[in-house]
Write a protein that binds this DNA or RNA. Structure first.
Lengths: 234, 234
DNA sequence: ACATTCCAATGGTGTTATCTTTTTGGGGAA
DNA sequence: TTCCCCAAAAAGATAACACCATTGGAATGT
């Protein structure tokens, strides 16, 4: 009762999150069968709400439904792994590490190219703002303010992705933010960021500002190369 | 009647595709308001079906719904641009070019890193198959069989993405296939693939086979660099 | 003239009941 | 044993209705 109305979303949000997380974590194994009726009872909701939920899960390719059979959990290889909801569920599950590794590798791939794109397409305001964030990053880094550093680091990467003018790059900003946050929370960051990292961020901002695509790509490569090494990818 | 049952999906598939394409193409501008009642009538379906459809569109962040207001088309920046359905709609719309450009840039970013990952993680069978596909590619290329070349090229890139062991890389295989197909259909491919391209594909296969991550990344970089130039990204 | 309060219309949210359609497993006939 | 047909199962779809959050604007007061 109180819980049903307490959370922000409607009924089917709750149901969606619960089921989604069950599937993402593997607790509901691929091949498992559900029926609408079971679900109605388990979550004590109406058929309509149960249907809504399954339709959304179906559109994420987490399940498929066949008449006479019921609703079947899909093989992971069919999942829409770029759906932010699924990413969130996977990060919340026990399979966190796998999702984290995939995201990091994606970030390593995308960010240098995004930097080059930003050097070509960023607006004047964006170029200025990037420079300001890079300077702020140095200030906070040298002051040893890890929390502030993280916030500005996220802002820097987010702005860069958006400045790329590629909406697919921009769309991964939330995922990059989660990766950066996780990195800090896990204590994987040195107490004081390395000089090389600070310099690399500044170089990205400078190159983007000057419209030097090659330099921007190279500098962003230096930013992520330390991540590659930390992940054992080099 | 006949049309309703003729196509593969149920009622709401039809409705979803129609609406999705309208939104993706911009014919239904951001900020446009719909109501369930309007939609029921326009598509002559029940409220339940209309709801199902809107829930799916909502989960893709193409729309959001608020009480008393109705269903509102979202700003493009909120869209889940990695959802295969949306990619498909955008490629089918008049904004094809923009989607095509974004995908190509994404491919340029991801494929070299995917090649490096494949060199590290591909199975023995995958390594062998990659080599076979590269050889077949040369044979078809030198024979001037563009259609066969395209098919094998798609198979090569798809296998590589899957061999990367990163499910997010694997998930973009369908999009890469569409880009390659489009490139050939638009006559952007030379009648006979360039020697450099054939060599680059072979080098990727060889490097992956040997587990040489750096070489694999560099060779795949050569594969996509011609695309960069063709798109004016260099 | 302007700000505040309040009310009623609107339209999504969720429930229940019912009918249709597809699929399939099993039983009976050839 | 094989084939065919039937009945049951479960999703697909429809309809009518109660509920309630929102909001635009009217009524009221300053």
């Amino acid at each position: 009762m109180s819980t049903a109305t307490a959370d922000g979303g409607g009924l089917h949000q709750r149901m969606l999150d619960t089921l989604g997380e069950s599937i993402a974590s593997g607790r509901l194994a691929p091949g498992s069968r559900l029926t609408l009726e079971d679900l109605q009872q388990e979550f004590s909701v109406s058929r309509t709400v149960a249907r809504d939920t399954m339709r959304v899960l179906e559109s994420m390719n987490l399940v498929y439904s066949r008449r006479r059979v019921g609703i079947v959990v899909q093989d992971p290889q069919h999942w829409n792994v770029f759906d932010p909801k699924l990413v969130h569920w996977r990060l919340a599950s026990t399979r966190r590490e796998a999702q984290y590794a995939s995201l990091t590798e994606l970030r390593i791939a995308v960010e240098p190219i995004a930097a080059a794109a930003a050097a070509r397409r960023a607006t004047h305001a964006q170029r200025g703002e990037l420079g300001a964030l890079a300077a702020e990053l140095r200030r906070l880094g040298e002051a040893g303010d890890l929390e502030g550093f993280l916030a500005v680091d996220i802002a820097f990467h987010r702005l860069l992705l958006h400045s790329s003018g590629n909406e697919m790059f921009a769309a991964i900003d939330q995922m990059v933010a989660e990766v950066l946050t996780s990195r800090t929370q896990q204590g994987l960051m040195p107490f004081r960021p390395e000089e090389a990292a600070l310099k690399a961020h500044e170089d990205v901002a400078t190159a983007v500002s000057r419209g030097d695509t090659n330099k921007a790509e190279e500098a962003m490569h230096r930013v992520v190369v330390e991540v590659r090494q930390a992940m054992g990818l080099d």
